[in-house]
């Protein structure tokens, strides 16, 4: 790993997580407000996160196991907000019934 490569990898990983968070936040807001503008921004965040992921996979000196791990993480990031939000809605619905 070269000195510049290490810095680029670290920044790439930070952006990867940050954009994943932005996607989750914007997706949740778009669902709650039923606003397609936020949905588009959410998708843009995920697209940016995927682009960062692809560049890390292509250019990083990380080993193949870590790259597979990052790829699986990237896919998981896509589903976490959807699954979490669906679960929360069901949870709140059942909570209202029980209260």
């Amino acid at each position: 790993m070269t000195p510049m490569g290490f810095v680029a990898d670290a920044i790439g990983l930070g952006l990867f997580a940050l954009l994943g968070g932005a996607y989750g936040l914007l997706y949740a807001v778009s669902e709650l407000r039923a606003d397609c503008r936020f949905a588009r921004l959410a998708l843009a965040s995920y697209a940016a996160q995927s682009a960062i992921l692809l560049s890390v996979l292509a250019f990083s000196a990380l080993g193949p196991i870590w790259k597979v791990f990052l790829l699986v993480s990237g896919i998981a990031y896509y589903f976490i907000p959807r699954v979490t939000l669906r679960y929360l809605k069901n949870l709140h619905a059942s909570g209202e019934i029980h209260s």
């Binding site: 997580a17 994943g20 968070g21 989750g24 936040l25 997706y27 949740a28 807001v29 709650l32 407000r33 870590w66 791990f69 993480s73 998981a76 990031y77 976490i80 907000p81 979490t84 939000l85 929360l88 809605k89 709140h92």
Partner: peptide, 25 residues
Amino acid sequence: GGFFSALEPLPLLGMVIHAVYDAGE
């Protein structure tokens, strides 16, 4: 250590979703 600590942001992302949902709800 690398594997499990790299997983740590995932539940934290769930907490962000929860916070947004609670505020909206």
